[in-house]
Design a protein around this nucleic acid. Structure first.
Lengths: 137, 137
DNA sequence: CCTCAATGGTTGACATCATCAATCAAGTTC
DNA sequence: GAACTTGATTGATGATGTCAACCATTGAGG
């Protein structure tokens, strides 16, 4: 990759990084309002349907033991419960009624709190979505 | 904000989040190659010039006490040193010769390892850069 | 049917990162 | 000169993350 191409790639990555930091900060602010940490909030949002703990670990790209601790804390908060799966090795994380309620509230707050994308016109948002999809392909 | 607008905003934020997660993962992989954590690497990259610890804390958007620990660890690694500022309250973090060398290596690796933006054409990268700048305005 | 490998989840150790409160030295303001 | 603010540190605490080891369970293969 020629140097000017490296520079361009670096500058673009830096911008993506900054936008991501802002989005992260927005998210952290919103989830703090409901007394959760960002990871806890991501987990609660993920659990629209009950999920195997191993599946959650893959989604979060972390060690299985990390999910043990995370589940413990969410259980202590009354947000989730562990239920047996068909396979006796497997435990499913399921939102409690309280967790379901909080998840709905959180989803609304997260959507309403997304200041990062609010600065674009509708056409620009569409354009950005297309570019991001290409990145994710 | 009308519901459809919320949905659109949510979908766009989700994509940004995913792209950011990929970029983060790429970054974490690259910095692990040189034996640093992501935060340590960000710090080393930031210290192109010596920086007051308080300034670094603002850049990283964290508590000043976190920077004390971070500086301790980077000092132990031989990457930085604390030097006095004009104001005797202030301590500057400065890269050691070893830190300067590692920073150059790291910058190259990070640039070369940016797979996230490699999928776009030159025109698309320009377009993305423009949109991201608008988000950051 | 038994052995072996793989899988899921947990435990324990450890490191990093993050906040918060309290503290002290230093600089600034009135 | 007193009061306030700032910068850095210390100590306590909690969350998050990995790694190794372990145990129960399932599946594959002979």
């Amino acid at each position: 990759m020629p140097p000017s191409r490296l520079e361009e790639s670096r500058a673009l990555s830096a911008r993506l990084f900054q936008v991501a930091e802002r989005a992260k900060a927005d998210f952290a602010d919103v989830v703090a309002e409901v007394g959760l940490t960002p990871l806890q909030a991501r987990t609660v949002l993920w659990l629209q349907e009950p999920s195997a703990m191993r599946s959650l670990a893959r989604h979060l790209a972390c060690d299985a033991s990390n999910v043990t601790g995370l589940a413990d804390r969410l259980e202590e908060l009354g947000m989730v419960e562990r239920t047996p799966g068909d396979d006796r090795r497997v435990k499913l994380l399921r939102l409690t009624p309280r967790g379901v309620k909080l998840r709905a509230d959180l989803a609304d707050r997260v959507a309403a709190g997304s200041t990062v994308t609010a600065k674009l016109t509708a056409a620009e948002r569409k354009q950005l979505a297309t570019l991001l999809d290409k990145l994710l392909a």
